[in-house]
Nucleic acid binder design. Sequence first.
DNA 1: AATGAATGAGTGTTCATTCAT
DNA 2: TATGAATGAACACTCATTCAT
Lengths: 201, 201, 201, 201
Amino acid sequence: MNKNQISRERSKTQITDAAFRMFIERGYHATSLDAIAQEANLTKGSVYFYFGSKEKLALHLFNIIHDEIVCPQVEAIEQTRGSFVDKVVAYIHVGSNAGVHRPHKLLFMIQMSIEFGFQDTPLAEGIRKLYSGLYASIEAAYEQGLRDGTTSFKATPQAVSSMVVAVHDGMMLQYNLRQGEIDGPELVKNVRKMVLSGLNG
Amino acid sequence: MNKNQISRERSKTQITDAAFRMFIERGYHATSLDAIAQEANLTKGSVYFYFGSKEKLALHLFNIIHDEIVCPQVEAIEQTRGSFVDKVVAYIHVGSNAGVHRPHKLLFMIQMSIEFGFQDTPLAEGIRKLYSGLYASIEAAYEQGLRDGTTSFKATPQAVSSMVVAVHDGMMLQYNLRQGEIDGPELVKNVRKMVLSGLNG
Amino acid sequence: MNKNQISRERSKTQITDAAFRMFIERGYHATSLDAIAQEANLTKGSVYFYFGSKEKLALHLFNIIHDEIVCPQVEAIEQTRGSFVDKVVAYIHVGSNAGVHRPHKLLFMIQMSIEFGFQDTPLAEGIRKLYSGLYASIEAAYEQGLRDGTTSFKATPQAVSSMVVAVHDGMMLQYNLRQGEIDGPELVKNVRKMVLSGLNG
Amino acid sequence: MNKNQISRERSKTQITDAAFRMFIERGYHATSLDAIAQEANLTKGSVYFYFGSKEKLALHLFNIIHDEIVCPQVEAIEQTRGSFVDKVVAYIHVGSNAGVHRPHKLLFMIQMSIEFGFQDTPLAEGIRKLYSGLYASIEAAYEQGLRDGTTSFKATPQAVSSMVVAVHDGMMLQYNLRQGEIDGPELVKNVRKMVLSGLNG
DNA sequence: AATGAATGAGTGTTCATTCAT
DNA sequence: TATGAATGAACACTCATTCAT
């Protein structure tokens, strides 16, 4: 990688980092490219040079999230040995880890799923595709659990995956809405406890 | 009520209904007053005549939510006799009822909590006030459960209330994001089952 | 005059008084009919009922000014016996009296002459007509003074009338711009002194 | 100065020139930024690019006036050797020169002093600051004249400065209101004559 | 005599986007 | 690689005006 490529990468990273921060703080629509560019110590022109449009920038963030957040979560589910609940707990842990170390990225995903959830745009499609990977993986794990008898919870796979994601995303949102008020690790611990005996019971 | 008052009420209702619908579909920032006015079969001018500003219109929606959604939820928690879990289940049922009959209002509340959660504006304050009423009521119920021995779940009250709200809001979001894919009542039933044994266990 | 007529007159006076006050404070364009109506303890509708439009309301104010300000000034010039300077001093005294007792009306006239001076609208025409009566009367007095030898100041009548009005209006503006800072009567006294020896010299 | 800077300067000048013209013709409130932009052969967006807001544009015009009009006037007063009346005459000459060569700028200053005089906004503050520099300089000259005996006119310094500015501004307004009707240089000559013997007398 | 609901054109302002350099 | 000038469409908001009552 030559000097040019390095500087390119640095600039792109500056922009995506700034974009994550601003989008979460203010939401997609309320964030101007000017604000992102300023936060990245560059100009609007650069953002266009690298990403072409605001929408494409957001789609690029979706890709990052896919690689850094969703993939590890799916892997956690698929590679954890044990019962379905074990896999769910692993998923929640990976998520809450990301929520602690890269909170902006995880939050951005959840936030976008709400800001665009009911629409019919490329961005809405993009966010739904992220989620459907998660659903599929949870549902597969649940069905596997049913087959090998490690799960006795009776429900449709869709209801189960929705429930798991609901708990996970709801927890992340609460943690961030009440920042300062509540203790993150404690929240995770209790949610795990509830899910554990809840899904086992 | 004379003719004038009737037309007044009708216009205001048209506007608030339209606003709820549009704000949920597109979010607060992405919804123009023109769009709301058109949806309400009126003009922008009328919206200003009745509400004065976009922000005040949204705050008015918060008041409606307070009366129609949050108050019934708080009442359900406070007036249900029995254990803490019984109260939580009552809360979830009221919420899911509202989610079925007035889905836009409940969703609007959740959506706004995310679009404004981290900001410092009158709207952000308004939405946080709605939530803090809920938190307080759940925390009181939990502490009462501890005192009278109907609850053995050990956690800080804040973590408990966050968890409950997380499950509730997360469920509502999932239900709406996967509309058509999943069965609402079944989702509620399963969440109740999980919470029931999860918090009792 | 029956009860109805009395109430009509009172309402019209409330509106014109309010209009004078608001127009001076904020200027014609920056004053809304709503603001005037509120100041008059009536509604916009009433203003339209009585005056038909914002422009017509302003033209009505011009008529009031004609009767209460300009006519007395012209009379003072025409009925004062003595030299041209005596007449000018009489004019200035009537003006400064009006400036003390009905300051808003005189100021409104000056202000409008500037806000509309260079335009070609009914309002601009109206204000110019007010002034041209004044000019004519001063010029006649000056020419009379030249004929009967009571004036030795040599200039075109237009220059003289402009000068007199310039001093008068300029003085009124300064008095109002520096309200509190300067003493009105003293300003008038000094201006009279300057004009007296200046035009006689 | 590179090409960019040149185009920048040209655009800014086009805008400020257009703004001066339009503001005088129609007043501040009655002039839309669209009109200014069109007159400057640019778009509203450009005006915002360079000045940020209508108010800031006007404040920029105030700065120009400070440099091109008020400073020369103050300098004329301070650097003229001789009696107080000599200094006043110098001030009037500088002003009437500006009134001939840059009539729009001087008029703009006077006009704004009336449109905003009684208000409490940044623009009102700005215009008052322009005037207070003038007042101070005239008052200092008058007091110096009293001390060195070159002036025998007895009045408060404030009344004197008000009078001088009144005559100056009133003259400028009259000249412009009666454009075509009266002869500028003759007006100035006569005013000078009046002031000369008036203040000396 | 007076109100208040409703409108529509217009205003200041923002912002994604383009493009020459 | 990156900038900054410029645009145009959209936005929240204002306001003179109309009209049924």
